[in-house]
Design a protein around this nucleic acid. Structure first.
Length: 714
DNA sequence: TACTTTGTCCTTTTT
DNA sequence: GGACAAAGTA
């Protein structure tokens, strides 16, 4: 058991042994960030500067929190119970369970995941007769979460247009519904905890004086509310230690606010900003490529990665004729590398969007290459598991109408839509939960739940789960279903999960303030489970660039480097969208240890149409001397296409090649009697069906049938 | 009430 | 092309 301070480089050592003061650590990709965080915690405790109970360390993912805990306990023999190490949501949950009265919540409040939240909003809209064409539940969900993440309650939403007003009304009604039912959605966990501290000075004083050191991982991903929450936990005696990398900020779309880094530096008069720039992961060429690429961003705190390792191999670049061709090539390379001894699990294919995995999977499957795709349905998100959890939620908290509606008639027991509507009316009148007004047909269900509650009282967790999945009729039901065997297996797996969910898990995750069933349900909501059971096979790793963050591989394929895809066309609509796309590319490149492949395809099937794509500008931003082209560079494109990469038009996207449609070609300038002059950006169909997509600038982008539209070459 | 058919919309994701 | 939801049919 040792901290091995001698293995740290000077900057790492400085960060680890910083005196008690605020600090900002700019930790580049592969610079040993986690090591610095964990070693600092161990160093603080070992030196007697703090007790574990005076420490709070917060991350974004359970995985990161677990890893931190494992590494700390490897350095120091510690009891993890006293330490507040976890995710923002996990820690907030813990605080809310302890102070549930002050927070105005039942102790066994249930947590809605995004799916549950959407269902609850849909239910609300229906009950209030909201026209879904005017307000889509999805938009409402987005609105509610965005407000909560800014710390804004419905009553505080600034007056806006008609639409905002309606959304705000629904926001208020939704919060009321949640309060009545004793449920809390993800952003609410944070907001409630924030308000708890804000409105109860005694509590705030208690925690802020208790925590002498607050450490934050992935600080660039924090949203405004999270930062404000952190600030409430800081007293004059507290040192706030934030680690992050502005160049790896890729979650703006879900509220992350990189500006927190500079705000923190300013507001806390941070004296020490330490840059960790030595990279221990990648060879020089890969880092040079990453550095050159990210240098094109204007908004940066500034950082340059370097390595003591050699230049390594050149970056290999491939141009496919089509997405299928690109996939075929990837498979060949993977097979060749595997033959030479690289493990498939050390190779990753990264892509911008999930839809791209299909073609790759097809090629891999047909060649029999084992692969694993990340990002699918996770264990606790499966329908049968959600059903079982709904029964358990009702046992834990009878007020939970979301759970009620999910399983009242599942398995089918003759409680149809009409009965449910009547129940909902009655419940609304009496302002009581659905379970309470369940009479007539619905009393079957009421009796079932109440029976389960008495029967499972005081039993060990796994027995509760076992009894519930049996008596609910779920097992019985799936036995009759064609593909029910897998579902039954998953339900059995849920019993196993309950059996291995230990007292210790419970205390580390929720403190001592929750009963075992509630703690387990919380665990299920906050930790949806590993993506999929990882079969032990040596499989090629496939995932989006987003999910690759934090990971590393010997070999990385970054595929689909095309304008419109990566950078994604949607990003052009967002403020600083292109810079975020570039950071995304930066993250992708810096995943590679030894070998990096970049590829793009001339044509790609997207939304059921073949699109002609220009190579991504990011390919141009990597210095050519670092790259080795496996195909003639931009072979077919250069001859015909205008060079869009330096034009002001953000996304000309479609490639001006070969195909002529009704006498027009992509890239051609045209004039329309009504819309004026424009440029053809896409084309499809043949003969009389031929259509072209024309960008008319201020007049918009339009699809026009060549046979009909009075289009002239300009 | 359960199944089929048609219509709409397509990033990225953790909690 | 395909997922998902709403509308249509037995």
């Amino acid at each position: 058991m040792s901290l091995h301070l001698e293995l740290l480089n000077p900057e790492q050592l400085a960060a680890v042994t910083l005196p008690d003061e605020h600090a900002l650590i700019l930790a580049g990709a592969g610079s040993g960030k986690t090591r610095v965080l964990t070693t600092r915690i161990a160093w603080l405790v070992k030196g007697g500067r703090v007790s574990p109970a005076q420490l709070l360390a917060v991350t974004f993912t359970n995985k990161a929190a677990r890893e931190m805990l494992t590494r700390i306990t490897a350095m120091l023999p510690l009891n993890p119970r006293g330490m507040w190490i976890g995710t923002f949501h996990g820690l907030c949950n813990r605080m809310l369970r302890v102070h549930h009265r002050d927070a105005g919540l039942p102790q066994s409040f249930q947590i809605l995941d995004s799916q549950d939240q959407l269902a609850a909003l849909k239910r609300l809209c229906k009950a209030l007769g909201v026209d879904e064409d005017r307000i889509a539940p999805r938009d409402l969900q987005y609105f509610v979460n965005a407000q909560k993440e800014e710390g804004v309650r419905a009553r505080d939403v600034p007056a806006g247009d008609e639409n905002t007003r309606r959304l705000t009304e629904l926001y208020a009604a939704y919060d009321e519904q949640c309060q009545r039912e004793g449920v809390v959605d993800f952003p609410e966990l944070l907001l409630r905890s924030f308000e708890l501290l804000k409105n109860h000075e005694i509590l705030r004083a208690h925690y802020s004086q208790r925590f002498r050191h607050v450490l934050v991982d992935e600080f660039q991903d924090t949203n405004r509310l999270q930062y404000r929450w952190l600030k409430l936990l800081v007293s004059p005696q507290t040192s706030l230690f934030c680690v992050g990398d502005d160049d790896q900020s890729i979650y703006t779309f879900r509220g992350a606010h990189v500006g927190n880094m500079s705000d923190f530096e300013r507001e806390f008069r941070v004296r020490h900003v330490i840059r960790l720039e030595q990279n221990y992961r990648s060879h020089g060429n890969i880092l040079d490529a990453a550095n050159a690429l990210i240098a094109n961003n204007r908004k940066r705190l500034g950082k340059n990665l370097w390595t003591a390792a050699g230049a390594g191999e050149p970056i290999r670049v491939f141009e496919g004729e089509s997405d299928a061709d690109e996939a075929r090539w990837v498979v060949e390379e993977v097979q060749a590398l595997a033959r030479e001894g690289t493990r498939r699990s050390q190779m990753a294919v990264l892509y911008r969007s999930n839809a791209q995995s299909r073609v790759l999977e097809h090629a891999l499957f047909s060649q029999g290459v084992p692969y694993r795709v990340y990002g699918g349905l996770r264990f606790f998100e499966r329908a049968e598991i959600k059903h079982a959890l709904a029964y358990l939620r009702l046992v834990a908290l009878p007020d939970d109408d979301s759970a009620f509606l999910r399983v009242a008639n599942f398995p089918p027991r003759g409680i149809g839509a009409r009965t449910l509507e009547q129940l909902q009316d009655a419940a609304k009148q009496a302002r009581v939960p659905l379970l309470k007004v369940s009479e007539g047909k619905a009393s079957i269900f009421k009796n079932l739940i109440e029976g389960l509650k008495t029967e499972t009282q005081g039993l060990p967790l796994h027995e509760i789960v076992e009894i519930v999945i049996q008596k609910s009729g779920l097992i019985e039901h799936y036995k009759t279903e064609r593909e029910g065997a897998d579902r039954i297996q998953n339900l059995e797996e849920l019993v196993n999960a309950a059996a291995t969910f230990s007292e210790e898990d419970r205390e580390v995750e929720s403190g001592e303030a929750a009963d075992p069933l509630t703690a387990f349900l919380t665990h299920a909501a906050l930790e949806a489970g590993e993506h999929q059971a990882g079969e032990g096979q040596d499989a090629l790793q496939m995932m989006t660039v987003h999910s690759a963050k934090g990971l590393e591989f010997d070999v990385v394929f970054l595929s689909g480097l095309e304008e419109g895809l990566f950078p994604h066309e949607q990003s052009a609509m967002e403020r600083d969208g292109l810079e975020e796309e570039r950071r995304l590319a930066y993250v992708a490149i810096t995943r590679a240890r030894n070998r990096l492949y970049l590829s793009h395809a001339q044509t790609r099937m997207l939304h059921g149409q073949t699109r002609y794509n220009v190579a991504s500008r990011f390919l141009e931003e990597v210095p050519q001397q670092l790259m080795k082209w496996l195909t003639p560079r931009f072979s077919r494109q250069k001859a015909f296409a205008p060079d869009f990469s330096r034009s002001n038009q953000p996304f000309p996207l479609k490639k001006a090649v070969s195909r002529e449609v009704g006498g027009f070609r992509i890239g051609q300038n045209v004039v329309h009697p009504k819309f004026g002059s424009g440029v053809i950006v896409d084309a499809e169909g043949q003969g009389t069906d031929a259509r072209v997509q024309v960008n008319f600038g201020s007049q918009g982008v339009k699809w026009l049938a060549v046979a009909v539209a009075k289009l002239q070459a300009a």
